[in-house]
Design a binder for these strands. Structure first.
Lengths: 337, 337
DNA sequence: TGTTCTACGTGTAGCGTTCTACATTTTTGC
DNA sequence: GCAAAAATGTAGAACGCTACACGTAGAACA
């Protein structure tokens, strides 16, 4: 066992800065935190030394007493480009702050959240968490928390940022109706039940009923497993009473639907119209031209971050921010002549 | 200013575990690290107390003395699903270890890397870094480092994990030739020059020459800006001497190429064949059916993580792992009859 | 002139771990 | 049965920072 690791260049500490600047450690710390009681002269001296020595405070050490200036983001998955939009929003909110975001990815947030708390994140943003309010409250008792995509506000001791998923679904159905479709099936998610999915299904049902199409309400569900998704879509599109439109709970599923439909020789939108959700960049591709519901991920990320920092700074009552979704129409739902 | 944050439930510390188990703090620490010199009896007692109190060691505190058991991953971008494959590999390598991965996203790794070092990451994996060897060595002097997608091994004081990008490009060209194409253009990246891109361009040139097509070598470059990419592709496909095949440096660009070609009414592969790189999940879609070079992101991630942990454990000489790419043929390059 | 403020600095006790050095007990070898 | 060696446990000093409690000096006030 050659346990002799290569000599690492040692870090500059606050003590060295203090001695270089000829002041106390406490003074340097004050400058670092712009705490009260530092003269301009002292600040300048200290900052010069920090610059000169290229000093950077060690987050772990700070965390032991105060903050680490680190926010944790928990994504359910990395494959969906929608999350990149949220991330962009987070970053632009962080631009002029001293905070840094670190991401983790995990379907079941649980163990990842614990790991982030162990690592002293000052606050957490959970994206599309599959957790009960009880569990989320339990987390919120230990660290400032904001959830993106969670609709149960009952007694929530955390903030939420959502798009109006129920409205989004209604818009999708309404748009399809306006383009002359009647047999509209919703393609939804089976496995982890989430409040987001519930809202979208509810919106679908309500709008179908309102449009006088209550009789043809049909929700088909699949887990997030590629094989299953394809199988179920294929079965749906091959069935005798195939729908003339599908509303998919996320763009990714809509792309799968386009793929299966194309495979079966169906043309879009003539034989089957398709609507997705999230309005990801891939919707624009000519090979997709997917009509989708835009929920502005960037705004979601930005607002979530804003709320989180407020909460870290001491706010204790909950706030709930809602974005209004809108239809972005493309060829996948063009009017059937 | 209501600076009264809600009372957070305080953490269980090692001291409480020690007193609950009736042993010293040092003993608990030993159990935690499975250090030498703990009897089975003591270990059992301590573990029972840890379980009972639901104790979790605080990473910041550990970091101050030893390790934080956190690895940092730096992605250049979140939009490319290829990175999800790498991430999957990292995770499966981490499965039976006590390490956790935290991700950051940044085109220019620099400031993010500093932030990660400040946060006491035990080691870093940089994915597709746009950095010189000098800069990377500078980082490697301060923290164990592995680069995925970096071909300059000259005097590298870090490990690298690569697919053979030069071979990958050759395979792409060879495959196109076999299917009867002659005017093969490469669509490459202009802005941040990277060793990966260099290798792919080199492979393209070499294979074109070898195939006797040296005369029609043509590399078109665009930055990673959507507008520009589309403009340049459109110009290329509308030009008088349009190529009959395009080799794109990444799947994402290939999808754009398919989009533009579709837009222009060109059919694939009859009018124009297209090859991508990465073999991302989206290649399978019937609307794409994109032939692509597979570089098994999962293997890259797994090996990188393995090497990183070895390095953290003391290895000081550099290792360089190479994966052999392969062509995955789909309809976008089917033989033109 | 004395007294009270206010502004500016400093000393130092932790924060929750790890780890070296050491004390004590048990085992081993002869 | 005794010394030496091995095994097991503990004390306590860091690690780099924050923040509380003070000290000091000059300004403002009466």
């Amino acid at each position: 066992m050659t346990n002799k690791s290569p000599a690492r260049t040692p870090r500059i500490t606050i003590r060295e800065v203090a001695s270089d600047a000829g002041v106390s450690v406490a003074a340097v710390s004050k400058v670092l935190r712009d705490a009260y009681g530092v003269s301009e002269a002292l600040r300048a001296k200290v900052q010069a030394s920090m610059e000169k020595l290229n000093y950077r405070p060690l987050a772990s050490a700070r965390g032991l007493r105060g903050r680490t200036y680190t926010l944790g983001l928990v994504f359910p998955d990395l494959r969906n480009p929608f999350f990149a939009d949220i991330f962009a929003g987070v970053n632009s909110a962080l631009e002029r702050t001293r905070y840094q975001a670190m991401q983790g990815v995990s379907v079941s947030a649980s163990s990842l959240v614990e790991a982030m708390i162990d690592r002293q994140m000052d606050g957490l943003v959970l994206i599309g968490p599959n957790e009960t309010n009880e569990r989320l409250n339990d987390i919120a008792d230990r660290v400032p928390l904001v959830a993106i995509g969670h609709h149960d506000l009952d007694d929530a001791r955390f903030d939420t940022v959502n798009n109006d998923d129920q409205l989004g679904a209604r818009l999708a159905v309404r748009h399809l109706c306006q383009n002359g479709h009647k047999k509209i099936t919703m393609f939804s998610l089976s496995a982890p039940v989430s409040t987001v999915i519930n809202q979208r299904e509810l919106g679908y049902r309500l709008e179908m009923t309102e449009q006088g199409l209550g009789g043809s309400i049909n929700i088909v569900r699949a887990p997030q497993v590629l094989r299953e998704v394809q199988l179920i879509l294929r079965r749906l599109l091959e069935s005798k009473d195939r729908p003339d439109a599908i509303f998919c709970w996320t763009d990714l599923m809509a792309f799968e639907a386009i793929s299966v439909a194309t495979d079966l020789g169906l043309s879009i939108p003539e034989d089957i119209a398709i609507v997705g959700y999230d309005n990801t960049v891939f919707c624009e591709f000519s090979q997709n031209r997917l009509t989708s519901i835009d929920q502005s991920g960037e705004v979601l990320g930005l607002q979530a971050t804003r709320l989180l920092i407020e909460r870290i700074d001491g706010r204790s009552h909950s706030e709930h921010f809602v974005v209004t979704p809108r239809v972005v129409a493309r060829a996948s739902t063009a009017k059937v002549s």
